[in-house]
Design a protein around this nucleic acid. Structure first.
Length: 893
RNA sequence: GGGCGAAUAGCUCAGCUGGGAGAGCAUCGGCCUUACAAGCCGAGGGUCACAGGUUCGAGCCCUGUUUCGCCCACCA
């Protein structure tokens, strides 16, 4: 690579390239020291609050967190600048099973299990782990620039939050909304705990369908039943058939001899059975299958558990006791085959439930568990969404939400693990009395015994996270924070936890606070790799946010995430885009560097732009009008959660209007001897740059803060600057129209130059033919501006004849004529003219059709009709010139 | 089996209440021109998946089809 010419060092205080690593570190430390993120509570101001979706304390920042927190920070910084009472509550989730697994793995390296330690010591060990490693993700969020109020960081196992959990449990229990019962649950034999329905993932799995032959008890025949899990036959307590299935009516009084067990089981008649499936007969294992459990309830069947909590066959399995369930399956199949009870085995694909934490095949089994009756709570949540008290963005999720809430089942909230909120229920050892209290009771209120035993189960982690929006604000105390910040403004999260978490927060908030937990829910997409694949460690396509930050800078990474965050689509992360936005950040940096060179010895008072904007020079009027349009667009996009538009509005304005046109245009003034013009340019330049920095600050906090500090004047942090308000006085359609003409002329002349391969250093002679006197005068006025942007000697005339050897173009009503003897690619030009002519003719036919259509004329709004007329006129003029040019060029052939 | 979403330039995607098809990247050509070669200037590139319909007018609304993706669901 060629060395670039060194720039004159005395002119620049800023390095040529933006050095993000040092800047980010320095400013984040500064913000923390200044407590810039602390919430304020001032009466009379609007409140804006967000509670962070608490990452698992075991978590390591992944790209989903990065997206999630960038969007939250964007809104938080925006509202903070707007002057709202702004609070962003950070924190982590104790993540029961996940954390317990992590610590158990650690113990395993010491050849220990949690049982070796005992419950108390184990929990101490988890806390110790949390002290040591639990801050990882929090520190990573800080690298992202997150402006959370860190002094309010919470943990779901905090004392305060634990109190809230117990309080809620007791209230719901006393209202009859929490109950304990022996029901079928999803059991993870590895995690050794019950799981909620939505903690089970169903993978399509290639398995086998075993057809088992069960003989009738009277020896008169047999029935074939099909199962994917033959080992459960040991727990069969019936065979079920459809009540209308005449094939089996005679079995009503006979019964079935269950192979391998010597037991005789009844035949029951149940509508659940599909007559068409297999033989229409279904083996019923009420203790190990959810459907069979229901059938068992209806027919009062015995529930025979044949496995223990580890998935090992128990005493009820007879000679199979002690075998693992999968080993048992093999043995059973072998034995059935030997004894002639195996009819056939077919390959079969079916959904197998697996633990979402450890992917172990879940065993449905009956067990004593605690449940929440969710129906009444769910109804409130549905009503809140239906009534618009909670708005979901994008609203395509409404229907899915309703469907899920319709079918919701009671929520199993007890878990047989150690790490978590222990259920606040005690049983009296003497009389069996059940006590559910916030604080541990001393004596049994029924018999006075002190032999009380607390429930060993802990609560589902989602139980405590369901309370997060109010528990973090101090509930059940009546705090100032609750008063100011509840309901929170918006919840930003990924759609995959809409039901795990969002719905449950709605239920709990509405029930306990009698108020929605948040007004809006913004569900962002899942981040995938650039091929649309889910990122996973095993695939090796994971993009690590910290690597992005180190390579491209936090601002560039944040800008990328923002630009990708369009509503309602998966996000395909492409590293090249990050690099692209790094260039954009650098572009901004250099624009600021250029500005700073002119502003460093700026006169006092120059920062205040008090003059009538319409009295300014054209380019200034134009850029201020564009600034205003950008302010309006950015604010609308932020208010509507159209994050990608926040990014693109800034990108387009900064690069393609401010840098490409404005900075180039005002260079003449900045280097001019005309002090008034120079001062005006400096003042407007500063104003525009300030607005850009403020508009971009929510997305790119570091670079904007760094540049802000370099601008003239005594400046505190940009974080506390007011966010730009729309400036109606800057709106200037007239200036925009004139600039559009001038930019068109400049681009047109540049195109002519390039296509004729005129050397960049050479000047061309150009004649601008403009019949309209007023517009001619405009062109005359800004001729020097045009000439500064394109090397050309301009002549502006009312009429003229285009010489044969000239290149010709039309910009609005201005003809550009450039004589270029011998430089014209005649064939190429003609080809383009043919294409252009065809296009114009096609358009004209289309418009003529419309304008001669009575229905169009009577139905279309006047503005649309007028627009069509204007277009027709413009196209006709273009077509005329195109034909002229064609004829002229043909002479040159 | 239900539900949802997607299909627009070579790639990744915008396109909001229907009114002359856009961006970034990539490609091609030219340039170190006093912020930036991490840059500047210019160019090419589209049957908006397909088939119907509504409308004066459809990328956008309706119906159907195809192909992909996701979620939910008890068919053993």
């Amino acid at each position: 690579m060629k060395d670039t010419a060194p720039s004159s060092p005395e002119k620049y205080d800023l390095p040529k390239a933006y050095e993000f690593a040092e800047v980010e570190q320095r400013w984040y430390t500064h913000w923390l020291e200044q407590k810039s993120f602390s919430a304020r509570m001032e009466d009379g101001k609007p409140s804006f609050s967000i509670v962070i979706p608490p990452p698992n304390v075991t978590g390591v920042l992944h790209i989903g967190h990065a997206l999630n927190n960038t969007l939250q920070d964007l809104l938080i910084r925006y509202h903070r600048m707007k002057g709202d009472n702004t609070l962003w509550v950070p924190g982590t989730d104790h993540a029961g099973i996940a954390t317990q697994n992590v610590v158990e793995r650690q113990l395993a390296t010491e050849q220990l299990t949690r049982h070796d330690l005992g419950r108390e010591k184990f929990i101490e060990r988890v806390w110790a782990w949390r002290e040591e490693k639990g801050g990882t993700i929090i520190n990573q969020l800080k690298r992202m620039g997150a402006s959370c109020d860190w002094e309010r960081e919470r943990f779901t196992m905090d004392e305060g939050l634990s109190t809230a959990v117990r309080e809620v449990f007791v209230r719901l229990f006393k209202e009859g909304l929490i109950y304990k019962g022996d029901y079928i649950v999803n059991w993870c034999p590895r995690c050794h705990t019950a799981l909620a329905d939505d903690e089970v993932e169903h993978d399509p799995t290639d398995g086998k369908l075993y057809h088992l032959r069960y003989p009738y008890a009277d020896g008169s025949g047999s029935v074939v039943v099909a199962t994917t899990r033959p080992e459960t036959m040991l727990g069969d307590t019936a065979v079920a058939v459809h009540p209308d299935d005449e094939r089996y009516h005679h079995l009503k009084t006979i019964g079935i001899n269950l192979p391998l067990t010597g037991r005789t089981i009844p035949v029951v008649f149940d509508h659940h059975v599909q007559r068409e499936f297999g033989t229409g007969a279904l083996k019923v294992t009420p203790a190990h299958d959810r459907d069979d459990y229901e059938i068992g309830l209806r027919h009062n069947l015995e529930r025979l558990k044949v496995m223990d909590d580890y998935g090992v066959m128990n005493a009820a399995a007879g000679k199979y006791a002690g075998l693992d369930r999968f080993a048992c399956r093999k043995q059973i199949v072998k034995d059935l085959e030997e004894q002639g009870f195996l009819d056939k085995i077919e390959p079969y694909q079916h959904a197998v439930g697996k633990c979402y934490r450890c992917a172990t095949v879940v065993e449905p089994t009956t067990s004593k568990q605690w449940f929440v009756s969710v129906r009444p709570l769910a109804d409130k949540a549905v009503a809140a969404v239906e009534q618009g008290r909670i708005k979901i963005y994008p609203n395509t999720w409404d229907r899915t939400f309703y469907a899920w809430m319709e079918n919701i089942r009671d929520w199993c909230i007890s878990r047989q693990i150690w790490w978590g909120h222990r259920i606040p229920a005690w049983t009296c050892g003497a009389c069996g009395e059940l006590m559910v209290e916030v604080n541990a009771p001393d004596v049994c209120p029924s018999c006075g015994s002190t032999d009380l035993h607390q429930e060993t189960d802990v609560l589902d982690t989602w139980f405590s996270s369901a309370l997060w929006p109010f528990s973090t604000l101090g509930w059940p105390e009546k705090t100032k924070e609750l008063e100011f910040f509840y309901p929170t403004s918006v919840l930003i999260t990924s759609f995959d936890i809409l039901f795990f978490w969002v719905a449950r927060m709605m239920m709990m908030g509405l029930h306990l606070m009698d108020e929605v937990p948040f007004h809006d829910v913004y569900l962002h997409a899942l981040v995938r790799d650039k091929f649309g694949k889910k990122m996973s460690k095993s695939t090796g396509n994971v993009i690590d946010p910290l690597v992005m930050i180190e390579q491209y800078g936090t601002d560039a990474f944040r800008f990328t995430l923002t630009a990708f965050a369009a509503q309602g689509r998966e996000i395909r992360m492409d590293e090249e885009r990050v690099d692209g936005y790094r260039r954009f950040i650098n572009k901004l940096w250099n624009a600021a560097r250029f500005a700073q060179m002119h502003l460093k010895e700026v006169e006092p008072g120059i920062t205040a732009l008090t003059a009538d904007p319409k009295a300014l020079a054209l380019a200034h009027r134009w850029i201020l009008s564009r600034v205003n349009a950008t302010i309006v667009a950015v604010r609308a996009a932020l208010d509507g959660y159209n994050f990608n538009e926040v990014a693109s509005a800034n990108y387009q304005f900064v690069w393609h209007e401010f840098c490409d046109w404005y900075l180039e245009w005002i260079k003449a003034d900045l280097f001019s001897q005309d002090v008034a013009a120079q001062q005006q340019a400096k003042a407007v330049l500063l104003t525009v740059l300030e607005n850009i920095l403020k508009l971009m600050h929510p997305i790119t906090p570091f670079v904007t803060e760094e540049i802000w500090g370099q601008l003239p004047g005594n400046r505190s942090s940009i974080m506390v600057e007011p966010f730009p308000e729309p400036m109606a006085v800057w709106d200037d359609p007239e200036a925009e129209a004139v600039m559009q003409l001038l930019m068109g002329v400049i681009s047109g002349l540049r195109t002519i130059r390039t296509e004729a391969e005129v050397h960049p250093g050479a000047k061309i002679d150009a004649t601008l033919i403009c019949p309209d006197a007023a517009r001619r005068e405009l062109l005359q006025t800004y001729a020097s501006g045009i000439q500064a942007m394109v090397r050309a000697n301009l002549q502006i005339v009312a009429t003229g004849i285009v010489p044969d050897d000239a290149v010709h173009a039309l910009v609005q009503d201005v003809e550009l004529v450039v004589p270029l003897k011998g430089l014209i690619d005649v064939a190429g030009e003609l080809e383009k003219l043919v294409k252009e002519k065809a296009r114009l003719e096609k358009e004209l036919v289309r418009i003529a059709g419309k304008l001669s259509n009575d229905k169009f004329m009577s139905n279309a709004p006047e503005a649309v009709v007028q627009k069509e007329r204007d277009k027709a006129a413009e196209f006709r003029a273009h077509l005329e010139k195109t034909i002229e040019s064609t004829e002229r060029l043909q002479k040159l052939r």
